[in-house]
Simulated scan of single mutants.
Amino acid sequence: MVIGSKDRLAEFADHLCARFAVEQRGPRRIVPAGKGSVGVVWRLETGAARYAVKEFLWGLQESEVDREVAFRDLTADAGIRSPANIPSVDGGYLVRLPPEPDGRLVRVYEWLDGTPVRAGQVPELVGEVLGRMHALEAPPVNAPDPWYSTSPDEATWSALVATASRAGADWTGELVAALPRILDLAAVTAELPTDTPRLLHLDLQPSNLLMVGGQLAVLDWDGTDTGSPERELGFVLAHWHLVDGAVDAPGAARMVRGYQDSGGEARLHGLSSFGMRIATHLNYVLCQAELALDTDADPATRHTALQRTRRSLARLPSRPELAALLHAGQRRA
């Protein structure tokens, strides 16, 4: 289904209403609500009822969705706020748009109205949410995804530089200048986690939290997977309290206090505690850079990937910054 015209949007809304268990309370309307690296978000209105619709740009397995739904429901039972998953009329949660079998996959969720949360805000509440998730000790259901733990090796980066140079990419110099820091950070991820792996959210960054009625609501559970609680703690700490090279030491200490006071048992032991933050950042840089160089991708996609590549290269953390954040997190105000 190619979405764009008014008629196509109406067809899109009709298809969703026919395939998902949504309330039919009035005229149907669907409007764009946002776009991320994995999909496009729409708002579906059926009279007074409203829903969030995610149209995925990449493939997705039913088993991945089932894992995410189960973990989200487990945390909801523990009192953590999040949008409910809306099932299809067949009882599943994933539906393919026409024309099948090549149409994009979509999911539908409860729509939540709230206030966006910025990095550095409400550190105790962020820590509390993470601590309550970890206290559930949800058992892993699969092996960890290397995306969260393993950084690309030096040969991969050398190949990327060569490809960018041959293509005449004007950002090649930025990549070459960043290589020493990239390789230094990659060395930090070589140390494997030693704590017990759990089923985790793995993407608790500011864009995935919303303040709803004085309570934090957790969004975007698509990354739910097996991981290290210690490294998720480091990941969240770095996303919230290390921004553009500035370490928010008081906020970091308050976040860790909220985490521990709500039952979180992970502890920061060294720079390797930030291994997930480093690995995901470097893998993201590589993924976006390769997409920016992909001549088979459409121009708009390549342009967006280029912007993301440059922004991610400019925001690489350093060892001294991570060391300062580690010290702040270990102090626990």
Rank of each mutant, 00 (worst) to 15 (best):
E124N: 04
V247G: 00
S272N: 08
R104S: 15
V95E: 14
A13Y: 06
T156E: 15
D102Y: 06
S262T: 03
N85I: 11
A292S: 10
P116S: 12
L209N: 00
L94P: 08
T115M: 13
A155S: 14
R319T: 07
M211P: 05
R43C: 03
Q307T: 11
Q307S: 09
Y93Q: 12
A217G: 02
T196P: 04
E128S: 01
A252Q: 00
H15Y: 10
T150I: 15
Q121C: 15
E232V: 02
W111V: 02
P206K: 01
G275N: 07
E230N: 01
V40E: 07
E45K: 03
V31N: 09
V126R: 01
S151G: 08
I182D: 06
G258Y: 05
A178W: 07
T224Q: 03
R107Y: 08
G91R: 04
L204M: 09
V40L: 05
F71V: 05
D145C: 13
Q288I: 07
T172S: 05
L192I: 04
P87E: 10
E174W: 04
L74N: 07
W171M: 10
E55K: 00
Q330H: 10
Y259L: 04
G103W: 11
V218W: 00
D261Q: 00
T163V: 13
D14I: 01
L74F: 12
A33K: 02
S63A: 03
G26K: 05
E154W: 13
N208L: 02
A252V: 09
P27E: 10
A18P: 00
V256N: 00
D77Y: 04
L216P: 05
A143W: 09
L233W: 04
L282C: 12
E45Y: 10
L233D: 08
S149F: 14
L242N: 00
V218F: 04
T196D: 06
R181E: 15
A289W: 08
M276S: 05
D244G: 03
E321W: 07
F20C: 08
E265K: 06
A78D: 13
S158T: 15
P180I: 03
D145F: 14
L210Q: 06
A159D: 15
P87I: 02
R96W: 15
V69D: 04
A143E: 15
R72N: 11
F71A: 11
V141E: 13
P99C: 14
E191A: 01
T304D: 15
K35Y: 15
A190Y: 02
P139V: 11
E321Q: 09
